[in-house]
Nucleic acid binder design. Structure first.
Lengths: 126, 126
DNA sequence: CTGTATCCCATTGGATACTG
DNA sequence: CAGTATCCAATGGGATACAG
């Protein structure tokens, strides 16, 4: 029973670690800018400045910050071309593209329910 | 051409309005707490206090704030039982449940890629 | 129990300037 | 062009108190 209990405790600790990691990833990813960048990248390869232009309303700072985060989590890949001026390109990795598929679904959902939401808002705001 | 142009302009204005609404909804929904609440509700009906207990780490304030937002957008329904003490229950609406399905996918994605992300992080942090 | 309001600190995020 | 750093305003979000 001693070893069994130890093993059970170990498994629980392991699960807790995985859960807290999952939580962390969820927090990283479940934010407006990260999702918009992922959606904008799609299956293309874009330069920093192209992303800044295409992700409506994002600031220089938020873009770099979120790109670093995506890179750190292995969702986007950063390629530096050692030219002058420098040319840096970003593209989604396999896991990044997998996530993108789910973001696509959220976008679809949004457009499908536009009118439901609009009228719900109208009702609520009165 | 005049009427055609006018019609085209009208359509564009319409699209811009829809886009900005979609943007707004996306911003509302693409945040950690909203998604965690949706995921926790699932297809159940939960009281305010049950939600506060089950959504790990959420504060009183964030919970009410996000519940109001979900209600306003017609994603969650609020039922007040006029007892004393009051009993208020929340449940997802049809559109809310549809969104929940996509959140489920994000959760699946997270767990599927835990190890990829963990090792990507390790590589990056060195 | 649920909800609103307030205070207050921590974090977010924009604007700008500077480096390679 | 891409990235970092800094400053500062705005928002987020926790703790607490109070009302219904």
């Amino acid at each position: 029973m001693g070893s069994k209990q130890a093993s059970a405790l170990y498994d629980e600790a392991d699960l807790r670690r995985a859960d807290s990691l999952a939580r962390e990833i969820f927090s990283d990813v479940a934010n407006k800018w990260a999702l918009l960048i992922i959606e904008t990248l799609g299956d293309r390869t874009l330069r920093f400045s192209e992303l800044r232009d295409q992700v409506e309303g994002i600031s220089h700072k938020m873009l770099t910050q979120n790109l670093r985060m995506l890179e750190r989590n292995g969702l986007a890949e950063r390629t530096v071309h050692p030219t002058v001026p420098p040319r840096v390109e970003y593209t989604l990795t396999g896991p990044g593209r997998a996530l993108r598929a789910t973001v696509d679904l959220i976008c679809d959902w949004t457009h499908e329910h536009l009118s439901h939401i609009e009228s719900a808002r109208h009702r609520f705001d009165t």
